[in-house]
Design a protein around this nucleic acid. Structure first.
Lengths: 145, 145
DNA sequence: GTGTTTGCAAAGTGTTTGCAATTTA
DNA sequence: TAAATTGCAAACACTTTGCAAACAC
């Protein structure tokens, strides 16, 4: 049994996460709330399923890796996350869903946003009829010199 | 036993492929020659291991899928191919190793070069010390409107 | 209560590897 | 003949799925 005040005090740190889930029409389960908190509290970030799972466990949140995968995809489907394909070995998810580009460290495999890189695509070549651009990804790859 | 004339007539269509392998310091084995011919005869192309393996079999060239994978990576290592990360599900290899960008069809999963798309990266943000840009990938993703 | 979500373990996918047999130089 | 290459099958890493139990509303 959970008292009203206990619930309120417990809920407060989860309020932003709760909003996000509510707004997206996803049931605020314990797991989803905890993952949303990890993802969206604080600055933008880039995670892999494995990373987020590890963080959750360290934060004493019981979640299975399968649920982390499912949750990341659900969040992506409702536009809370953006999936970035930079590395054939694993999938990255970005909490920044606005238009921006990426800087990938090939040594550490860390992914960063490029904040103010002006990319101009001149002469976008004619797409085949009935096709539209769904997105343009720019990935600057760096490594130890 | 193979006669000299038979060898010569057989070798002619493989001459460009042979050059490539020689130049790269790779032994021209039957498999590598056949794969090089499929890859480099004709216009630039984008292949996955599965695709190239299928083609080889259809052309009555006996190659195992493992060898196709190994060969694609060897070719990539010596600069004959470039690996493109566009799809989390599979790896693409591009015979065009010059600077250029890509157009990816999310429906058919076909990959194309963008021939003359001028991409200007202004204000390349300062890289961390000791790091250099190894490459910039630009991927325009399109899908059915 | 009813439909949704979870966790597990099993299955799946694309890819890599160990090693004996084969091929190249 | 010595060294490199191949093919197979097993191993791999990451990801998805089937289904019963747990949960949200």
């Amino acid at each position: 049994m959970t008292s009203v005040s206990e619930k309120a005090s417990l809920a407060r740190p989860f309020a932003p996460a709760l909003e996000k889930l509510r707004g997206a029409g996803l049931r605020p389960t314990r797991q989803r709330l905890a993952l949303a908190k990890l993802l969206f509290d604080g600055p933008d970030r880039h995670v892999t399923a494995e990373m987020l799972h590890g963080e959750a466990l360290r934060a004493r949140v019981q979640v299975s890796l399968a649920t982390v995968y499912n949750t990341l995809h659900q969040f992506t489907d409702v536009g809370l996350l953006r999936e970035i394909v930079v590395d054939a070995e694993r999938s990255y998810f970005d909490t920044n869903v606005g238009t921006h580009h990426h800087l990938f460290d090939e040594n550490s495999r860390a992914l960063h946003d490029i904040p103010e890189c002006d990319v101009r695509l001149d002469t976008m070549p004619g797409l085949p009829a009935g096709m539209e651009v769904s997105r343009v990804d720019v990935i600057v790859r760096m490594r130890k010199a």
